[in-house]
Amino acid sequence: MRTATLKSKAVTAWDERNLASLKPQDFEPLPDLTDEESAEMDREFLASATEAQQEQADDLRARGYTVTPGPVEWISPIEQWVSRLLCWEIPGSSDDASEPMGARKVALTLDLPGGSPKDAIKVSIETKVVQEVDRDGRTTWHESLDTVSLTVYADGQSYLGFVECTCVCEMGHTLIALQRDPSPEIGQRVLRVLLDIDGDAPDWPAPLYAALKPLNKCQACGRKLDDPVSRVLQLGPTCANNLGLAHSQRVVEAVMRYCRARGLL
């Protein structure tokens, strides 16, 4: 996994000092909902997000993409594990920071089962940073997910694309979009790999390590891996520490358990 600070990416500034101050009386308290009212609201959120997913899929198909719809739910599983990889407590974004920060890029290569041993997915995750000045003049920095780009190698061909994790009306949807008109089966294979990386797993980051493509070198810095733990995890201890990922024999054992449970060994 390659990680870099994107120094050339501009920081978006948001200054609230000139906005009108809001008073407590400006906020109306939310009414208490019955169980049925709450369930009906959830159904409305689901219908709205599903409709938005279909509209976006239709637009991407009209632009020449092959689209594979993913789940519609409160938090995209892909957004969940990407956030864990970036060491965020909240899916999709970081906590506010008092010190300046830069946008980041993390690139990793995942195995793509179901085809040639050479099949793989290169995932490039980029973030963006907002500098916010509140009404009291306090400055904070906030990092959030910007793009998740894909390069898919399958059937002797390569396909460029991206993952879209969009939140609409409190509920989000996921799409895989690929160029060059690959078969629908390829999009389904890519989706399964990305969804199977469980960001909520109690043995995190074992699901991520298990999905990495064996490259016989550190996925972050490209150096040769000498110790047994690093060769299994495909990441050296220094690079793992830079990403906030555990790196030990215990993690290797968790990866083995994860792979055996899914018939990957």
Results as ranks from 00 to 15, higher is better:
residue 207 P to A: 09
residue 202 P to D: 12
residue 222 G to H: 09
residue 218 C to H: 13
residue 227 D to Q: 14
residue 226 D to E: 15
residue 216 N to K: 15
residue 224 K to P: 00
residue 202 P to V: 12
residue 215 L to H: 01
residue 227 D to W: 01
residue 218 C to P: 09
residue 222 G to W: 07
residue 203 D to G: 05
residue 229 V to G: 11
residue 224 K to M: 05
residue 239 C to L: 11
residue 220 A to S: 14
residue 241 N to F: 05
residue 212 L to E: 00
residue 238 T to R: 14
residue 239 C to G: 05
residue 211 A to T: 07
residue 210 A to F: 12
residue 219 Q to D: 01
residue 232 V to C: 08
residue 210 A to W: 12
residue 206 A to M: 03
residue 216 N to D: 13
residue 212 L to P: 01
residue 205 P to S: 03
residue 209 Y to I: 06
residue 208 L to E: 02
residue 226 D to F: 08
residue 238 T to H: 12
residue 218 C to A: 10
residue 210 A to R: 09
residue 238 T to M: 10
residue 241 N to V: 01
residue 206 A to P: 03
residue 208 L to P: 09
residue 217 K to W: 02
residue 228 P to C: 11
residue 217 K to D: 00
residue 212 L to T: 07
residue 233 L to H: 04
residue 210 A to I: 13
residue 221 C to D: 15
residue 228 P to G: 12
residue 227 D to C: 03
residue 216 N to T: 09
residue 239 C to S: 09
residue 224 K to C: 00
residue 203 D to N: 13
residue 206 A to K: 03
residue 225 L to M: 06
residue 208 L to R: 11
residue 231 R to F: 00
residue 233 L to C: 03
residue 222 G to A: 12
residue 234 Q to L: 01
residue 213 K to D: 01
residue 236 G to Q: 05
residue 240 A to Q: 08
residue 238 T to F: 08
residue 235 L to I: 14
residue 236 G to L: 05
residue 222 G to D: 06
residue 234 Q to K: 09
residue 203 D to L: 08
residue 227 D to S: 14
residue 241 N to P: 00
residue 223 R to P: 00
residue 210 A to C: 13
residue 233 L to R: 01
residue 209 Y to K: 06
residue 241 N to C: 07
residue 237 P to H: 01
residue 208 L to C: 03
residue 215 L to K: 12
residue 237 P to Y: 03
residue 202 P to A: 14
residue 202 P to K: 15
residue 217 K to Y: 08
residue 234 Q to G: 09
residue 233 L to W: 03
residue 215 L to Y: 00
residue 205 P to H: 03
residue 209 Y to A: 06
residue 223 R to I: 01
residue 217 K to N: 10
residue 235 L to Y: 00
residue 221 C to S: 13
residue 209 Y to C: 04
residue 202 P to R: 14
residue 238 T to Q: 11
residue 226 D to I: 08
residue 225 L to T: 02
residue 209 Y to S: 05
residue 216 N to A: 14
residue 214 P to L: 04
residue 237 P to M: 02
residue 208 L to D: 01
residue 219 Q to C: 10
residue 202 P to L: 13
residue 216 N to M: 10
residue 239 C to F: 13
residue 237 P to T: 02
residue 207 P to Q: 10
residue 224 K to F: 02
residue 240 A to Y: 09
residue 215 L to N: 02
residue 238 T to C: 06
residue 235 L to A: 00
residue 217 K to R: 15
residue 240 A to I: 04
residue 202 P to S: 15
residue 221 C to R: 05
residue 203 D to F: 12
residue 223 R to G: 15
residue 222 G to K: 08
residue 218 C to I: 10
residue 226 D to Q: 08
residue 235 L to T: 04
residue 207 P to C: 10
residue 202 P to C: 10
residue 224 K to E: 13
residue 232 V to D: 06
residue 220 A to C: 14
residue 236 G to F: 05
residue 231 R to A: 07
residue 207 P to D: 07
residue 212 L to Y: 02
residue 241 N to A: 15
residue 233 L to S: 04
residue 222 G to Q: 11
residue 240 A to D: 06
residue 206 A to V: 04
residue 204 W to H: 06
residue 222 G to R: 07
residue 233 L to E: 05
residue 220 A to G: 04
residue 224 K to R: 14
residue 217 K to S: 10
residue 214 P to Q: 08
